[in-house]
């Protein structure tokens, strides 16, 4: 009898575990089915898959539903609903939701504009190491939005994002070193950071690096390198690079222009 008493609770526990395992498996499958539908552009199915998950507290599903309401994918655009969903996920600690909620509070889309609350949520995500929030938080300090203006703290947060390889942050750190904002001016370091972002195909950094080469600022003057990087930026449609490319070409020989063109071809061939 005592054996049976011990056996029954164990059986129930095992059965319970089995059920949990199945339900967890189903939850993953639902999310993945939703993700596949989303990739196909079948937003209705994606919503159908993610909605039940969001209702039981899946923060990733809440976040994704929020983006669909915000962008009007598969549903009429509803920024207020997006903010509600992001808010729930943000309070559960989901960094992406904290990031989007902060941006909604900055833009006033779906929520009353509130820069102080935006900074609060950016801090929450930034302390989790979320690079895009670290970057925006740095910008908030740089412009004094929702916080007192503080270029040193701006530099610190943007550098954290740059250290994670965020190209926009890398470019901004390059500018801060160039201008001595929040940090002592250092043209060599400026070029280093521009280069990191430029190598990730960030057009503004490519144009900035081109200017440094053309002027010989922080790096030896090299017009071929200048035209190479300016062309890379211009090919992405950056308006100031289109003009910059024309200007550079007027100062260069045909052989130099050809060398730069060759360099662009090789770079693009390697990328493909």
């Amino acid at each position: 009898m005592s054996d049976r008493k011990r056996f029954l609770p164990r059986l129930c526990a095992a059965f319970g575990c089995l059920l949990l395992a199945f339900s967890a498996g189903d939850a993953r499958a639902d999310f993945n089915s939703g993700w596949q539908a989303y990739q196909r552009g079948d937003f209705f199915t994606a919503m159908e898959e993610w909605r039940p998950l969001a209702e039981v507290g899946d923060t990733r599903a809440m976040f994704n539903l929020g983006t669909m309401f915000d962008e009007g994918k598969g549903v009429a655009r509803d920024q207020k609903r997006a903010v509600e969903l992001w808010g729930e996920a943000a309070y559960s600690g989901y960094a992406r939701a904290q990031h989007n909620l902060a941006h909604a509070l900055i833009s006033g889309g779906g929520a009353e504009r509130n820069l102080e609350r935006a900074v609060h949520w950016l801090h929450e995500a930034a302390y989790q190491g979320f690079a895009k929030s670290q970057y925006t938080l740095g910008k908030m300090f740089s412009y004094g939005l929702g916080v007192p203006r503080d270029q040193v703290r701006a530099f610190d947060w943007i550098q954290k994002a740059a250290n994670s390889g965020n190209p926009r942050a890398e470019y901004n750190i390059g500018k801060m070193y160039r201008d001595g904002v929040g940090v002592e001016a250092d043209l060599k370091k400026a070029v280093e950071w521009y280069r990191r972002a430029a190598q990730q195909d960030y057009a503004k950094a490519q144009a900035g690096l081109a200017r440094r080469y053309a002027k010989g600022e922080g790096v030896a003057r090299d017009m071929v390198e200048a035209l190479f990087w300016m062309t890379m930026a211009a090919d992405q449609g950056l308006p100031r690079a289109l003009g910059g490319r024309r200007e550079l070409q007027t100062e260069m020989s045909a052989a130099e222009i050809e060398a730069a063109r060759q360099r662009v071809s090789e770079w693009k061939a390697d990328a493909n």
């Binding site: 993945n32 994606a46 990733r60 976040f63 915000d70 989901y94 992406r96 941006h103 939005l145």
Partner: peptide
């Protein structure tokens, strides 16, 4: 309501929001 700088901030905030993800965090 917000001036030109406010408009720029608002446009930036709209553009910098993240889209749906499969990432867990």
């Amino acid at each position: 309501r917000h001036g030109i700088d406010g408009l720029i901030q608002i446009l930036d905030a709209q553009s910098n929001k993240l889209s749906a993800t499969a990432a867990a965090n």
